[in-house]
Design a protein around this nucleic acid. Structure first.
Lengths: 81, 81
DNA sequence: ATTAATTATTACCGTACGGGAATAATATCA
DNA sequence: TGATATTATTCCCGTACGGTAATAATTAAT
């Protein structure tokens, strides 16, 4: 929700997700153009996702996440699996 | 990707995500109807998401995840944050 | 085995997603 | 500071998302 810090990569909003994706992309020294091509999406999509677009489609998001070498985990709150 | 087991809630595909969401919903004894109402989405959306729909929109997905008391985390592969 | 509950499928329809390209705005670099 | 690189915005357009309701199919309960 708040754009400040993301405690241990917890995703509460699309903003959080976008920030994490952008951070990884930049850490790897990729432009949006490069990363989009690498992940098989358009630059428009990647840019919008990084800016926190709520209507972005999950299949494409997962392609970006895995294409950039990120991992996504779902747990039950309070009881990590 | 394979629909068998999901090691520690790792999400590699929309199928994984859908299975995890359905599992939590059932563990809490909710019908799709109840859970959809709880999370503010339609039953159609929830049903499709649980079945692994790739074009479901992330904003709505996050509503369901948090509405059901699940948590989502993104990490860099190999180096947990 | 039968009934009840739940889920999947289908239809209608208004809104909109995202590719690709061009251009404006912003950030980075020397 | 000026040049270059990168990102954001805008446009066109074909495809489609998701709410709602009805119904078929499947699962659960008795």
């Amino acid at each position: 929700m708040e754009n400040k810090k993301i405690p241990n990569g917890r995703i509460l909003s699309t903003k959080d997700m976008g920030k994490a994706i952008r951070a990884k992309r930049k850490a790897d020294g990729l432009t949006q153009f490069d990363a989009a091509a690498l992940c098989g999406v358009g630059t428009r999509f990647l840019g919008e996702l990084e800016r926190g677009k709520e209507t972005a489609q999950i299949g494409k998001i997962l392609r970006i996440i895995h294409g950039l070498g990120l991992a996504l985990h779902m747990t039950s709150k309070g009881i990590p699996r």
